[in-house]
Design a protein around this nucleic acid. Sequence first.
DNA 1: ATGACTAAATACTTTAGA
Length: 295
Amino acid sequence: MRVATWNVNSVKQRHGRLLEWLDSRRPDVVCLQELKMTDDAFATLIGPDLEERGYEFATAGQPAWNGSALLSKVGLQDVVVGIPGAPEYEGIVEGRAISGVCGAGDGDPGIRVHSLYTPNGREIDSDHYAYKLEWLAALVAQVKADTVPQLVCGDMNIAPTDEDVFDPAAFAGHTHVTPPERDAIAALEALGLRDVVRERWPHEQVFSYWDYRAGMFNKNLGMRIDLILASGTVADRTAAAWIDRQARKGKGPSDHAPVMLDLDTAPDGDIGPMVPPPSAGRVSPKGAKLPQAKN
DNA sequence: ATGACTAAATACTTTAGA
């Protein structure tokens, strides 16, 4: 079974590339983030394309911003929209979480797959940052309460360690790298979840996000903030785990690349081409800075 | 010192992303 998570940065803008990627990689379960559209708009725009390819789907959409989706060719049961107990932001329930059980049947309990878009946090002294931490606490509580096999996937907006950014010095004082944020990832790992990409690439620079500006992708100045965290029995089935940098290349990409996990069973037939290892031989230049917002 | 790119709505400028 192949599982993928991808922040597509607008399904409307990524429609063609998303379908080409699905046809090339043939994932069985797909988590999408930043749909930037409502449930109805998603179903109208891309629902028929997904059904034609054998996917069931469920969405936690929202007008214009955020939005998470879960696609599955291997069953989609017990869908939960949102995280119980998660905070709202200024009275709005944002489309940041959806989960469902995939691959169940024949005595197999399946896997609860979460498709998550953690709040960005903006600045450390902002209420968006406090909201991010509260949201993460609700996620940890929910994962703890659920004892079935789990995959926690998505744009977590946290670089788990200093190895997950191009230069820790460039991120001093910024969100995504602060101890309270990293504590949330550590709390999930303390519950038995494992970061399958880092386990597979323990000493490589593997990034999943590169700012659109200033040639950051070409210089490999990125961050690893899109994660797949697997509970023990699922992580033990890892056949391959990687970041699909090919999907970040060319004209009109998302600023994120998909994260991929192959478990030790897969459907019969062609599941797509082999892909090269992530960032093979690439090392970030030293002393680079983050792009700065215009004032 | 500054800008840098993309997307959506607030729409020809602002807000947001990370």
